[in-house]
Design a protein around this nucleic acid. Structure first.
Length: 139
RNA sequence: CGAGCCGGCCGGGCAGCCGCUGGCGGACCAUGAUCCGCCGGAGGAAAGUCCGGGCUCCCCAGGGCAAGGGCGCCGGGUAACGCCCGGGCGGCGCAAGCCGACGGAAAGUGCCACAGAAAACAUACCGCCGGACCCCGGUCCGGUAAGGGUGAAAAGGUGCGGUAAGAGCGCACCGCGUUUGCGGCAACGCAAACGGCACGGCAAACCCCGUCCGGAGCAAGACCGAAUAGAAAUCCCAUGGCGCGGCCCGCGCCGGAUUCGGGUAGGUCGCAAGAGGCGCCCGGCAACGUGCGUCCCAGAUGAAUGGCUGUCCACGACAGAACCCGGCUUACAGGCCGGCUCGUUUU
RNA sequence: UGGGGUGUAGCCAAGUGGUCCAAGGCACCGGGUUUUGAUCCCGGCAUUCCCAGGUUCGAAUCCUGGCACCCCAG
């Protein structure tokens, strides 16, 4: 069974969007949130956990190391805040995070700040059953 | 101690917690994009894609020729190279050292603006010298190329002799060329004799000579599954089946190959043990090679190394594998080791 | 990952197999014409020809290396 406390901390392949089909599903009818450096596209799924896809193109940052940095920040935030397994009663979402050009100039703290803003909008629209102590205590 | 040169190396460390990914082992009333344990998990440039290979498919299947392109002192190393090592020559530096697209201009074609008499078959503006004429300054004829002037570059340089003035005209030295001898595998060097101006520069101008090169690329390519359109063109019919004419045989269809168009974007393999790393012996000035021992060292496929906390310090640069090797080039905080040169001080 | 292309003034751009001045147009600025404006005429743009080396007497042009931007394939 799922370990209730640590369920949201994992980030296996079941928590990611792995195929082009998964991305297309989200982009078809997305809920959106736009900011300076990032955009969120989300859509409720039929699964039992949230899933994440990230898009950082070469136009954002031509250096591979720079793109990896952005993706790591997004992944780490999602790992610590999203809904894990055992939430059959909830409406979980597929989320795609797209990085925009200014993101390359932001430091890690700034990226996390923006992620928090988008995430707060997301949970207002798609409420969780479980509380989100991480978000409230972090801010 | 200061200034500098060369070679080699490192690229935050430790501890804890939460994660990611591959392999192996295990768990299950949920056999999966799951969970648990152990072990492995980015670079010196992984980069730019500038060269050289391996490996695949296509073409040719034997090689040659042509086109186009690369390379270019000599010798060696290497699977190969445009790389590396050693040497020669030239240049820079007091030196340690560093740098060099460094074959050919009497095979040919072409270019050298402006200036200048003349820019390559040489030639004569101002001059200098001799002669003639007019008469006190020039004109004409001839000789000459030292000096002036022009230019990026002016037809060997310097000195002495020589001369009407001059000139390789003669001589000495330097330079250049030819021949011979000697040293060296060679590039080349040294020496002697001879030649005298006969060979201006540019081949990163066309080119000549020598030498090397077929094309594409792992999203190559192979297989499984799904899906669309037994649709189009060309060829084959050796084997097999069916139909038609009585058989040989022929034709048509099924079938096979290639191409074009359309559809699909799921999985498996390729996919990591290699021209491999390290250590030692031997050969070699060295690059490197032979042998022995030892190690297994990333394999993802929306794509893995991160986050947080503590602590130490010089407060962390450039930057992320995507088929794999050998090089080159470019980016880079800081630091370590070894050798050498010059200067200064002290003994 | 692989392949290809382009960098010349604020913008669009031409440019030679090397030699005074790097065409031209738009825009902008100054002046003239006009009662004023448009048109028209004259003049101007003080451009490291993307950057760094090299060849050459001389390079936007030739050679080498680099940077930036754009496009294409699956």
């Amino acid at each position: 069974m799922a370990v209730a406390a640590g369920a949201g901390q994992r980030f296996g392949k079941n928590r990611r969007l792995l195929t082009g089909r998964g991305f297309r599903f989200v982009f078809k009818r997305p809920w959106q949130s736009r900011g300076d450096g990032l955009r969120f596209y989300a859509r409720p799924n039929d699964g039992d956990c949230d899933r994440l896809g990230i898009a950082v193109s070469r136009k954002v940052d031509a250096k591979a190391a720079g793109r990896n940095r952005i993706k790591r920040q997004v992944r780490e935030f999602f790992r610590r805040h999203s809904e894990g397994e055992g939430n059959i009663g909830d409406r979980c979402v597929d989320l795609v995070v797209v990085a925009q050009k200014p993101c390359a100039a932001m430091d890690n703290a700034a990226i996390r700040d923006e992620l928090r803003q988008h995430w707060r909008r997301l949970i207002r629209r798609h409420p969780r059953r479980s509380a989100l102590p991480g978000v409230h205590s972090a801010t």
